[in-house]
Design a protein around this nucleic acid. Sequence first.
DNA 1: CGGAGCGTTGAGCAACGTCAAAAGACGTGG
DNA 2: CCACGTCTTTTGACGTTGCTCAACGCTCCG
Lengths: 232, 232
Amino acid sequence: MVGHLDHGLWRRLDDACSGVTNLKPRTLLSRAGEPLSESALLLDGMMARYVAQPVGNQNKAMVSIRVPGDFVDLHALPLGHLDHDVSTLTDVTIAIFPHEKLLRIMAESADDARALWRLTMVDAAIHRHWIYRNARLRAVASIADFISEMDMRLRACGAVADGRMPLPLLQTDIADIAGLSTVHVSRVCRDLREAGLCTIADGHTQIHDRERLHRLANFDPAYLYPSGNLSS
Amino acid sequence: MVGHLDHGLWRRLDDACSGVTNLKPRTLLSRAGEPLSESALLLDGMMARYVAQPVGNQNKAMVSIRVPGDFVDLHALPLGHLDHDVSTLTDVTIAIFPHEKLLRIMAESADDARALWRLTMVDAAIHRHWIYRNARLRAVASIADFISEMDMRLRACGAVADGRMPLPLLQTDIADIAGLSTVHVSRVCRDLREAGLCTIADGHTQIHDRERLHRLANFDPAYLYPSGNLSS
DNA sequence: CGGAGCGTTGAGCAACGTCAAAAGACGTGG
DNA sequence: CCACGTCTTTTGACGTTGCTCAACGCTCCG
């Protein structure tokens, strides 16, 4: 996603980076309500953001998933704090950017400011699609839609090697994404497999018939591309 | 929401405004995919944003609702186009801001740029809550949660007079918001009424017992406030 | 008076959740 | 090496939620 930034901004971001860190799988990076003074760019691995119910950490909902090249929590720059938890799914490598330095970049170039803003707006477009998915798609279509989205995004960042997509999610995670019970996710995954659409197993997903998968979910990837730019 | 902007930016926005327009209820302001070169601030009335299924306009999902003081489509400034439809619910009055002039404001002040960006980030936080709501809340809790959110937002913009909240939605609209059938919405509204929690009728909603309503939905308004600022 | 749009109700059914049990994968400690 | 516990997935049985279809009343408006 960050791949759509221009060279000049790239260089300025490179200068603004204060360091690179590694985190273990299933580690909390930051917590809802926490004030933040830096943001992270995901270089390798995958991360997720959760909205938890006020009482009890059960029934949490995953509201976003981050792939390499995504800023993890850039929205905290204008907001100053987070409204949700951020956590790793796998081993990850992140680059850290102090807000102070990002603000300086914004002050020096309105184009850069707009480019950073745009990154968070692509996120918002994905959020809207997730609202639509949870509101209107049935379990099977919902998971087919999610797999289709991840297929697009992971291929766009070059993470897919010969049709084998690294999707390091447990069925519990997919349940948190689609708002289903883990039991039902298990059944839906079996149905998708037996229908010859895709196999979700061992942290990897293979798509056997992309066209039928998209048709099942009524999937249109337009929302993923900021300017009709269908580079993949 | 715009009420949180500082005086200087207010004045600069005033200068940037290119005009004020009125629109009839249920009018499409702009359509998914359309390139936009101006954004609108909602002065009076209510509007909504929809994600429609690629084929067939049935089963559309409402992804956002706008109250007076909200920018309707500011996210189109960094994005350049829309990924969804924008439409009025009531008679509305909007102020128009050419992107060109907003970009000039951004170029002249990084603080202003950040303030505009922040407005869209509050929207994104609301999006995340809607994802959570659709994923994890049951019909009754879901509608209770939505009513609670609108109660907060409409009171914050001064639209509520003596406990009577103008919520110009049909049961069809609530179905599009909560991802339910209209038939079920009708039953849930009856249940909420009979439980003495709130009455949703004739484009207005009365909350009879706010505390029990919030408890039912497990409602915490923190996500609505950019900086823990609980002004209402 | 007739029609359209909206809300309400009932009956039957499909989708999904809950509970419970079991099996495989994996690591840990003896 | 084996025994054990934990984590994940799978399956079955059963209950609940919410959808679909259909009918009807109400209000507004031509």
